[in-house]
């Protein structure tokens, strides 16, 4: 493993991705606003995307970029549905955060 200065190796990208993923996870666990929690999920997805593309380049495989393409589509769909759910919830209970929605307890 080298840390050459002329060009960043794949490992650099992977480490960046790891940090971003951890930050996303931290945010998801700490924040209470459902919208911000969603954004943190997006952060984690992007971290994974970086990994895909970086390893795809390392292995000279188009599969990495294709996976990112599909992740983008799924993320878009997920956001649409997720936001719709949030809209419904907040319309019923204005100002609600993730901790308020706890009817499904045992």
């Amino acid at each position: 493993m080298t840390f050459a200065v002329d060009a960043p190796t794949t490992d650099w990208y992977l480490m960046l991705s790891a940090v971003l993923f951890s930050l996303g996870a931290l945010g998801l666990l700490v924040r209470r606003n459902p919208l911000v929690m969603f954004m943190c999920v997006e952060l984690m997805l992007n971290a994974v995307n970086i990994t895909f593309v970086a390893i795809g380049r390392e292995l000279k495989d188009v599969g990495g970029q294709l996976a990112v393409f599909f992740v983008l589509v799924v993320a878009a769909a997920e956001v649409v549905v997720g936001l719709a759910i949030i809209v419904t919830i907040i319309r019923r209970r204005p100002g609600a955060n993730a901790d308020d929605i706890s009817v499904l307890k045992g």
């Binding site: 666990l29 901790d99 307890k105 045992g106």
Partner: peptide, 17 residues
């Protein structure tokens, strides 16, 4: 054991994590 299931999404997220 029932108390584990407190309905809080973030606690569940902790579990997943």
């Amino acid at each position: 054991l029932r108390r584990l299931q407190n309905g809080l999404v973030r606690t569940y997220a902790v579990g997943i994590a």
